[in-house]
Design a protein around this nucleic acid. Structure first.
Length: 271
DNA sequence: AAAGCCACCAACCGCGTCTTC
DNA sequence: AGAAGACGCGGTTGGTGGCTT
């Protein structure tokens, strides 16, 4: 059997000592992050690069927030998990000072249980019919049999959603149907007027780097909701709504295909 | 007091993706 | 274009401390 890298090199494993932390911190502060493979030797550490990177990213890095999660952080994690699933690094990216490892651990030890106790399935975020009422203003016809994510969501029927495939990997041009406007559970007039749909799908391209940002996504009534999609499971719509400040809301546009190949758009907004 | 159980979380591992040559 | 190395992500493990019996 092949020996693990750390064993082969007779490197330290397990908990980090204070001296090791100090050496790594000093080295990274002086030379910067990256080149993790050369850092251990350069910093005088008997660790593999991978271990150094992990220690730095999850523990030593400056501006890390430690301690209990605030209620709004919990709330955000739950909403993001509902949309993104176990994409811990993406979720952590929306929580300043939190690491993917920390968010993942918190989810597994606290939030998972919390959702279960609320009658919500933590794997798919569907609500147990017997324990939770549907939001009163949602259009029932836009939902599948089970309730979906327990926050502001609209879904457009597959038939009204246009979805162009540019190639196997990327797809573009998503539009929301007029149903979006009427089924959105509006809690705020500003949003109500701002969130609407474009009349027809049109291809448009969005710079790749923008698509990487999993946040501050706003759709415009006038503009097409369209983009390049780095991943078929996550479609992000980018644009601007003049009436709504992007700093105030996060919007996700998710498109799912059913087994007949039809696609349905889901728009999710939260503060 | 001590054994057993459980929750928490730091750290490890394997694998997929990206980058470099 | 493709091989190799580096990096990053998510699942899992294992040590530790607190609580219960």
């Amino acid at each position: 059997m092949r020996r693990r890298f750390c064993e082969k090199q007779e490197l330290n494993r397990g908990a980090w000592s204070r001296q090791e932390d100090q050496k790594l911190t000093e080295y990274v502060q002086k030379h910067g992050e990256g080149k993790w493979r050369v850092i251990p030797r350069a910093a005088g550490l008997l660790r593999c690069g991978k271990s150094c990177r992990l220690r730095w990213m999850n523990y030593l890095r400056p501006n890390l927030k430690r301690g209990n999660f605030a209620e709004d952080e919990e709330d955000l994690i739950i909403k993001l998990h509902a949309l993104l699933g176990n994409r811990w690094s993406l979720i952590a990216g929306r929580l300043p000072g939190r690491t993917d490892n920390e968010v993942k651990n918190y989810w597994n030890t606290h939030l998972r249980r919390k959702l279960l106790s609320m009658g919500v399935n933590p794997d798919n975020h569907r609500i147990n019919h017997h324990s939770v009422l549907r939001p009163p203003r949602l259009n029932e016809s836009t939902f599948e049999q089970d309730d979906q994510i327990p926050c502001a969501i609209t879904s457009s029927p597959a038939s009204k959603t246009s979805f162009h495939e540019q190639d196997d990997k990327l797809a573009s041009a998503i539009t929301s149907s007029p149903a979006v406007k009427t089924t959105f559970p509006v809690q705020d007039d500003k949003l109500a007027s701002a969130i609407t749909s474009s009349p027809a799908a049109e291809k448009a391209s969005v710079p790749e780097q923008d698509v990487q940002l999993p946040c501050a996504i706003i759709s415009s009534p006038a503009e097409k909701i369209s983009n390049k999609l780095p991943d078929l499971s996550l479609k992000l719509a980018l644009g601007n709504i003049p009436e709504v400040k992007t700093a105030e809301y996060s919007v996700f546009n998710d498109v799912k295909e059913d087994n007949t190949g039809n696609s349905a758009a889901t728009l999710l907004l939260f503060k």
